[in-house]
Design a protein around this nucleic acid. Structure first.
Length: 648
RNA sequence: GCCGACGUAGCUCAAUCGGUAGAGCGGCGGUUUUGUAAACCGCUGGUUGCGGGUUCAAGUCCCUUCGUCGGCUCCA
């Protein structure tokens, strides 16, 4: 039951994720995690009984809570209290302000307000000052339990609070917390007094718009985000983390490393891959194709547009029209650019009568699709309007489904590991209320997903009712080098399209049967994957993926011939190398190569030319010294062959 | 789409109360021929996102529009 202050566990604003069958979304809607709920915490403490203190770190302080239950001071409690302190400060600046909700979140807290004017950064500074004053004075937080009528009276001029009160179920305890004359409807718990909050561990971060109760039909409120930690050091560590995120931003690195661009004039959300970015994509695609063939997939290619009748059959025009680009008129017929590849794959399926002996069919395509995304959601490569899905459809018999799901799960995990992502978290999404298909199908499908996850020994979270209306799914979130989770792979059952297209195969019994169909996007979209890859490696790609693997740096002009010889030798060994023939000095050439995050810098001068060697410097700054050319080639080609993600 | 902020040279940024746009990096040319993160000198570069308005005068104020950024919402 959301709404009372502190109850909602909102995701960190910087967390990004998205359903890979769509374009990339920057913002991860983390499932609400009950661990952070007050009630869950209270229950946990209850169950620990009176001996709980023995298992806790010494410096934890306990506060008494309603009913004599003891609560330890937690960061979450501090953050929640900080949101009250902030709200109190805002009320001092804007006496008529209307209060909405103000929960703790993963990295701090926020509070939503309805204010007579827009907040500015100067306001933030003022609010911070007022908060510091409140902290200094150590105002007590006092809890009071009140009747519903009392609550309605107290919050008579707070329409949002009234709405919350009115929605509280009968019999629910209504409590409020008060400090320094500021009263808020709140379940608590809070720290004993404001002095528990460390002013130097607190920072207000940003002002943002937010719909009341997340509903776009309701008023837009002003949200202030703040961050709060146990102490100054933790705050600084967090702020450094934010800086690191900014340094790794793929939009910035994409420009600095000349990987890709977007052109606002030519159309937002459409990606231009520059030669270096395209090189990486091409390597990934080659690897991807090879793995798919080896993994029992066949590749297909399909068109970019299809007649409206196809999209009527598939159901896209009914369900997802708003997300599709407008039709184009060709010979009096409406054609749509494809938002998904599946109908095309089904058409290929339909070109023959399929026998059970033909199944399973596994068809994969790097299919570029276009979806209209609302302008406000576009974000670099992570949420775009045109993107290439690494799509696959598996069509099989009910008997085969379990093996197929397991195989696709294993295949996906292997692929992620090869690309340097080793931490992966699966989510199983089950049947939502509004959905189609028979229960038996759903049961079997979910069972097969579960079996596969368990066969792999994976710990997974279940998102009850989180499946699509047309089938259950497994999503894989991968964790990047900064510990951020990105939803990438999705493995989805589809009970809708086989029905709509009347797909069938002839069984051993000679009768027609409906096959199972599974959609799978592994990397999700190549654009989004590339964005994540850039941020994961901070632009310092592993050797096998680096667009330029070695920069040859002649010390003086007289070494240019030798530099070219080396370049030819490396090219012959299928290594990607460039000579820096600019008029710069060696130091400048090294700096440039370093800034371009090129794995190897091969410095050559008289000594190297005399001995057919190269002096190898790594982008880490490490100097490996002189190496015979053939030894360097052996080293590099071996690392490339292993697709080594860590060594140079 | 919604709320807010922003949009000046390829990039990062400057330009007082409205007075007619400037720096570094980059690019180009020259000198230098260099041993592990920036040699020196010069040149080049902008109808201040687009359109309209106010004003003697607009990068600066107002409106519109496009886009970007931070959120919200959405996400097959």
């Amino acid at each position: 039951m959301p709404g009372r202050c502190g109850r909602d566990c909102k995701p960190h604003p910087s967390r990004r994720s998205e359903n890979p069958l769509r374009a990339g979304s920057p913002v991860n809607k983390e499932p609400r995690n009950p661990r952070y709920g007050h009630r869950a915490q209270r229950n946990r403490l209850r169950s620990l009984g009176g001996t709980a203190t023995t298992s806790r770190p010494k410096r934890e302080v306990f506060v008494s809570f309603a009913g004599g239950i003891m609560e330890p001071i937690t960061l979450e409690m501090l953050r929640h209290s900080a949101s009250h302190v902030m709200a109190a400060s805002v009320m001092k600046l804007f006496p008529g302000a209307k209060l909405a909700i103000g929960p703790a979140i993963d990295t701090g807290f926020y509070y939503d307000f309805d204010l007579p004017r827009n907040l500015t950064n100067e306001d933030l500074a003022k609010i911070t000052e007022l908060m510091r004053d409140e902290i200094k004075v150590r105002h007590k937080f006092e809890r009071r339990e009140i009747s519903r009528n009392e609550a309605l009276e107290i919050f008579a001029d707070q329409p949002y609070k009234l709405e919350l009160i009115n929605e509280l179920p009968e019999g629910e305890t209504i409590s409020l917390y008060q400090h320094d004359g500021f009263v808020d409807l709140c379940r608590g718990p809070h720290v004993p007094h404001t002095g528990y909050i460390k002013a130097n561990a607190l920072q207000l971060l940003s002002i943002a718009g937010a719909y009341w109760r997340g509903d776009e039909k309701r008023p837009m409120l002003q949200r202030i985000y703040g961050t709060l930690w146990n102490n100054k050091e933790e705050l600084e560590a967090y702020l450094q983390h934010l800086e690191e995120i900014e340094r790794r931003d793929h939009r910035r690195l994409g420009r600095e490393l000349d990987l890709f661009s977007l052109h606002e004039d030519a159309g937002p959300g459409l990606v231009y891959w520059h030669p270096k970015g395209a090189r990486i994509r091409s390597i990934v695609e080659d690897f991807w194709r090879k793995q798919h063939y080896a993994g029992g997939y066949d590749l297909v290619y399909t068109p970019h547009i299809g007649r409206s009748t196809l999209w009527e059959t598939s159901g896209h025009l009914v369900t997802y029209r708003d997300g599709m680009y407008s039709p184009m008129d060709i010979d009096g017929q409406d054609y749509y650019i494809k938002p998904m590849n599946c109908p095309f794959h089904i058409l290929i399926y339909q070109t023959q009568t399929r026998s059970y002996r033909d199944l399973p069919l596994r068809w994969a395509e790097l299919g570029t699709v276009y979806r209209y995304e609302r302008s406000g959601v576009l974000h670099g490569l992570l949420r775009v309007r045109g993107f290439t899905q690494d799509d696959a459809h598996i069509v099989c018999t009910p008997e085969q489904i379990e093996d197929e799901v397991l195989a696709v799960l294993r295949f996906s995990l292997r692929m992620w590991q090869s690309l340097g992502f080793t931490k992966i978290k699966p989510y199983l999404s089950t049947r939502p209320e509004k959905s189609l298909g028979e229960q038996a199908q759903w049961d079997q499908a979910i069972a097969s997903l579960r079996t596969a996850l368990e066969a792999e020994g994976l710990e997974y979270e279940v998102d009850e009712g989180g499946g699509a209306f047309y089938g259950p799914k497994i999503d894989l979130k991968v964790m990047d080098a900064l510990g951020r989770e990105w939803q990438m792979t999705t493995i989805q059952f589809d009970f809708n399209e086989p029905e709509r297209f009347d797909m069938s195969y002839v069984g051993a019994d000679g009768k027609n049967h409906r096959p199972y169909m599974v959609h799978r996007a592994l990397l999700g979209s190549l654009e989004r994957f590339f964005g994540v890859l850039i941020e994961h490696y901070a632009g310092a790609f592993p050797l096998w993926l680096s667009p330029v693997q070695a920069k040859i740096i002649p010390i003086a002009d007289r070494h240019h011939d030798y530099a070219q010889q080396i370049a030819r030798a490396l090219a012959a060994a299928e290594l990607r190398a460039e000579v820096d023939a600019s008029g710069e000095r060696m130091n400048a050439k090294i700096r440039t190569a370093q800034l371009n995050k090129i794995p190897y810098m091969l410095v050559i001068g008289d000594r190297e030319a005399d001995t057919r060697s190269v002096s190898v410097r790594l982008r880490s700054g490490e100097d490996l010294g002189a190496m015979v050319l053939d030894d360097f080639i052996a080293r590099a080609t071996s690392l490339v062959a292993q697709r080594n993600n860590t060594e140079l």
